[in-house]
Design a protein around this nucleic acid. Sequence first.
DNA 1: TGCCAGGCCCTCTTTAGGGCCTT
Length: 219
Amino acid sequence: MTLAPAQVPTTPMPRIAVIDFETTGISPAMGDRATEVAIVMLEGGRVVDRFQSLMNTGVRIPPFITQLTGITNAMIATAPEAETVMAEASRFVGDAPMVAHNAAFDRKFWQAELARAGLAAPQPFACTVLLSRRLYPQAPNHKLGSLVDFHRLPRTGQAHRALADAEMAAALLGQIQHDLRAQFGVPAPTHELLMAVQTCSRHAVPARIRQYLGASSAG
DNA sequence: TGCCAGGCCCTCTTTAGGGCCTT
């Protein structure tokens, strides 16, 4: 896919893993499980690798979820076991910090599915919903598809499938990083900066970025 | 079968309520 805009940062940027889950529902605590996971690996705002797999947890998919995602019980019946997929996903991500659209949701499933596989989930999560609320208050809403349209980013694949949604979230992250460079003079918007921006109030964003840049240059 | 949870954010707020966002 093409990330817009294609501006080359002045300093090398570490990897960021953008993740999206499709699931049987919204709450792992209520018994919901992942049905598909996709991860887009970014380096310097560019896609350098992708991971995608359906996964079989043995939990049936409700009809309205199949209607939403197109993922059927027949599809996951022949998919690899969830523990196998999550182990591969964990190796793929490594120690890269992570980003998701409404990260609270994907973080819950990342942690729950890795825990079932006996694996740790130490990665910090930044959230493109929180970042968009702070940076784009003029957007009509902050759904992933609406923000993609708002920024005129490319749509690739079928919405509500993991890889297509991860690609769109990655494109949105690329837009956010571009705007942080263009509007706030951040030479290389790191995951640490994203976390700093998303945890301050909307009106405190410029001051928070100045504070971060000052601390970075002093350190 | 089912519309479940939970953190965030705005306002008709702060001793609260309700909408957003994810599947």
